[in-house]
Computed example of a mutant assay.
Amino acid sequence: MLSHHELATLMLFRDTERRIEPLDPDVLALRRYALVEVRQRQADETTLQLTRQGRELLARLQMGGKA
């Protein structure tokens, strides 16, 4: 089960262009749950991306919030 901090961090991937620190404890947890992955863009640049599972979880959370 994700903590509220982990859920908030997951939502940041969807809602912002802000750089998220890859060694943040919440990001590490999301990586462990396979919701986020690290991508190597160039030799010295890595980015974090939502995985398919991460995108699906966010979609399910959005559906649950609509009345």
Score class of each variant (00 low, 15 high):
43 A>N: 12
1 M>L: 07
7 L>C: 05
20 I>C: 10
25 P>M: 00
49 Q>E: 12
67 A>R: 08
15 D>S: 09
64 G>N: 05
15 D>I: 01
16 T>L: 13
54 G>W: 03
21 E>V: 08
42 Q>Y: 14
24 D>K: 07
20 I>R: 03
30 L>N: 02
33 Y>V: 08
46 T>A: 11
15 D>T: 10
57 L>I: 01
31 R>T: 06
45 E>N: 04
15 D>K: 09
40 Q>D: 00
10 L>K: 02
29 A>F: 04
52 R>Q: 15
40 Q>G: 10
52 R>T: 11
46 T>Q: 13
65 G>D: 08
64 G>I: 01
39 R>S: 14
26 D>I: 00
12 L>S: 14
47 T>L: 14
5 H>I: 15
25 P>T: 01
36 V>M: 04
4 H>Q: 11
27 V>K: 02
61 L>D: 06
22 P>N: 04
63 M>Y: 10
1 M>W: 01
22 P>Y: 02
43 A>S: 14
27 V>A: 02
24 D>Y: 12
62 Q>V: 03
67 A>Q: 14
3 S>W: 01
32 R>A: 15
30 L>K: 06
48 L>S: 09
28 L>T: 09
42 Q>I: 06
31 R>D: 03
8 A>M: 00
59 A>C: 05
28 L>N: 04
36 V>R: 01
49 Q>W: 07
22 P>H: 03
48 L>Q: 05
21 E>G: 09
24 D>W: 05
66 K>C: 06
50 L>A: 00
25 P>D: 00
34 A>H: 13
38 V>H: 10
51 T>C: 11
6 E>H: 08
58 L>I: 05
5 H>S: 13
33 Y>W: 11
15 D>L: 10
43 A>L: 13
1 M>E: 08
37 E>I: 03
11 M>F: 11
13 F>S: 02
48 L>T: 00
19 R>W: 10
31 R>H: 04
19 R>C: 15
3 S>Q: 06
37 E>Q: 03
27 V>C: 05
44 D>I: 06
18 R>Q: 07
1 M>C: 11
33 Y>A: 14
51 T>V: 14
56 E>A: 09
55 R>G: 00
